[in-house]
């Protein structure tokens, strides 16, 4: 039977742009170009590699997001994913991680899966907890933060490099996997891939398709509330000296004046 891989991806504001908050303290999506979160490219890459190794596999990319989030799906399709699912609904605006994970879990169950693969974190929210929450919601093993991953005979194995130790993990499918940026560089879409992606199916779902009530998601349905967001004051301009042979000593003098030595 074909190995069903679902990759969760996020459409995020470009981290090199001037990111800010909208008036309702959600992430402003209008003034900065969006794109497929860089860290999710690693998830797409590992999904494609696993699919290439498998006898038969199908890679579905899934996102929850506004209309423009199709760009992220299109990128993943052009890298080589087979099909895409886009959950889009006006009531989703302002949804927090609990709501997003609920929507993803329902969509994953609807699509059908053997393994879910996600990136280590998004580049905008940067929480890094969604894969663990998905595993909890789906009731399947979490095999997360892997630098190496392999799926063989219905078993996922991988290496998790933690602060104190490097661990080898093993779990039976179905499972939720997340991969780090150490898992292997993501491929660039080829011209052929970009052309092929235009013909690949993108299924759109809304909340009613997933039997989710509007109150369970969105800003009002969030289980957390942001009360304020303030731009961090620019750091006051420091002293810059040019090294004329005494730069190290001058720096030591500064560190001594600040009581670091």
């Amino acid at each position: 039977m074909s190995l069903r891989i679902v990759v969760c991806v996020k459409y995020v504001p470009d981290a090199t742009g001037d990111r800010k908050f909208a008036d309702d303290l959600t992430v402003d999506r209008d003034d900065v170009d969006g794109l497929l979160s860089e860290l999710d490219e690693y998830a797409v890459e590992q999904a494609l590699q696993i699919a290439e190794e498998a006898d038969e596999a199908e890679v579905t990319v899934l996102t929850v997001g506004p209309e423009d989030a199709k760009d992220a799906l299109r990128k993943a399709l052009s890298m080589g994913a087979d099909k895409a699912v886009h959950v889009e609904d006006d009531d989703l605006h302002g949804t927090d991680v609990m709501g997003t994970s609920l929507v993803l879990a329902k969509a994953i169950e609807k699509v059908g899966y053997d393994v879910v693969i996600a990136g280590m974190a998004s580049t905008d929210g940067t929480m890094g907890v969604l894969p663990a929450i998905l595993a909890e919601r789906l009731g399947v093993p979490q095999v997360t933060l892997l630098s190496e991953v392999k799926i063989e005979g219905g078993v996922v194995t991988g290496r998790r490099d933690g602060d104190a130790a490097s661990e080898q993990l093993e779990a039976s499918l179905p499972a939720v996997v997340s991969v780090t940026d150490q898992s292997g560089e993501a491929r660039y879409p080829s011209f052929k891939g970009i052309m092929a992606a235009k013909k690949k199916p993108v299924e759109s779902l809304d909340l009613s398709d997933l039997d989710i009530e509007a109150e369970e998601v969105g800003l009002e349905g969030a289980w957390t509330a942001v009360d304020s967001a303030a731009e961090r004051p620019a750091r006051t301009a420091g002293t810059i000296v040019k090294d004329e042979g005494e730069g190290g000593k001058q720096l030591a003098e500064y560190l001594a004046s600040q009581k670091f030595i």
């Binding site: 981290a15 990111r19 800010k20 908050f21 303290l25 905008d124 969030a222 289980w223 957390t224 509330a225 942001v226 009360d227 304020s228 967001a229 303030a230 731009e231 961090r232």
Partner: peptide
């Protein structure tokens, strides 16, 4: 938030 360019105050609701 956003590479430490913003500071937010939040609570669990």
């Amino acid at each position: 938030a956003f590479a430490a360019s913003f500071t937010t105050k939040s609570r669990v609701s």
